[in-house]
């Protein structure tokens, strides 16, 4: 044949790496936390990724699915995921125990541009499972605290019992170098001491935002983007400094299976991190 293809059988981008569940425990009723380590120690330490990227995880006999990485690359070796029991793969995954094996490949997609974000103020807005990818960049900022200006976290959930990483974030509230605001749509416990209302009700709490010097990051359920993006725009944050990470169906992670196509891009290659600028140019994005 003609052409100069270089792919060989030994260079197989679809090949999963056996990985072990080190620890798993529930975060909420239907969301579990998973710590996973690639079985081959050298490969585990060599797995270098960026905040906002995702990995493909295989539960043998059930299938493969994409998951945002919730851990930070500043703490290598162990990968963390925050996963909702929602489909075939996750149902099978929830049946696995610590020390069981899964398959892992990646990392895939674009990450948050932490180099460009250096020296800037960072507002992180998470809702629901949006905490999964954004926890990565939050921890990264905190681990490299001197590289960033103000770090602000706005986190919304439906009920206190549904707030992911609640304990971790209540603990973080004690830090004086993080502005952490939590809210729930409604408090059904009577013991909630944080805010009440949707996540956008937290924006008036923000004071002295210097928009040119600020990055706004958002991830959450599809309905949330529109409203949070409006808040960012009201603050006059430049469009290329408003970043979001999006969910789509992905079966391959490498731009071949087609499922995550939007317009001329593939979410798995050209995303999942997009800027508001991209949203203006691609109609189906949000």
């Amino acid at each position: 044949m003609n052409g100069t293809q270089k792919a060989t059988k030994s260079d197989n981008p679809f090949l999963p790496e056996p990985a072990r569940i080190v620890r798993t425990y529930p975060l909420t009723e239907d969301v579990n936390f998973f710590q996973i380590r690639i079985a081959d120690m050298e490969k585990a330490l060599g797995f270098s990724y960026q905040t906002g990227q995702f990995a493909m995880m295989t539960v043998l006999g059930a299938g493969e699915a994409p998951f945002s990485i919730s851990s930070t690359p500043s703490r290598p070796g162990l990968l963390e995921f925050c996963i909702r029991k929602a489909g075939t793969v996750t149902n099978a995954l929830f049946n696995l125990k610590e020390n069981d094996l899964v398959g892992l490949r990646g990392p895939y997609g674009t990450g948050f541009p932490v180099d460009k974000m250096q020296g800037k103020d960072i507002i992180i807005v998470m809702g629901g499972l949006g905490a999964a990818p954004l926890r990565s960049v939050l921890l990264y900022c905190l681990d490299n605290r001197d590289q960033f200006g103000r770090v602000i976290l706005l986190h919304g959930a439906k009920r206190p019992a549904e707030m992911l990483f609640l304990e971790e974030q209540l603990e973080l509230k004690g830090r004086d170098d993080l502005e952490c605001h939590l809210t729930v749509d409604s408090d059904d416990t009577g013991q909630w001491t944080e805010g009440t209302g949707v996540v956008t009700t937290l924006f008036p709490k923000l004071e002295g935002i210097d928009p040119e010097n600020t990055f706004g990051l958002v991830c959450g359920p599809p309905i949330m983007y529109k409203f949070v993006l409006q808040e960012f725009l009201k603050l006059d944050i430049p469009k290329d400094q408003i970043l979001m990470t999006l969910e789509r169906r992905m079966k391959c992670g490498v731009g071949k299976c087609g499922h995550c196509a939007i317009d001329y891009i593939y979410t798995c290659l050209d995303g999942p991190v997009f800027s508001y600028w991209d949203v203006i140019h691609m109609r189906e994005l949000i």
Binding site: G3, Q5, T8, D11, N12, P13, V254, G255, K256, L269
Partner: peptide, 8 residues
């Protein structure tokens, strides 16, 4: 199939 990541 050759774009970005090659599919063997």
């Amino acid at each position: 199939y050759s774009y970005a990541i090659e599919d063997p």
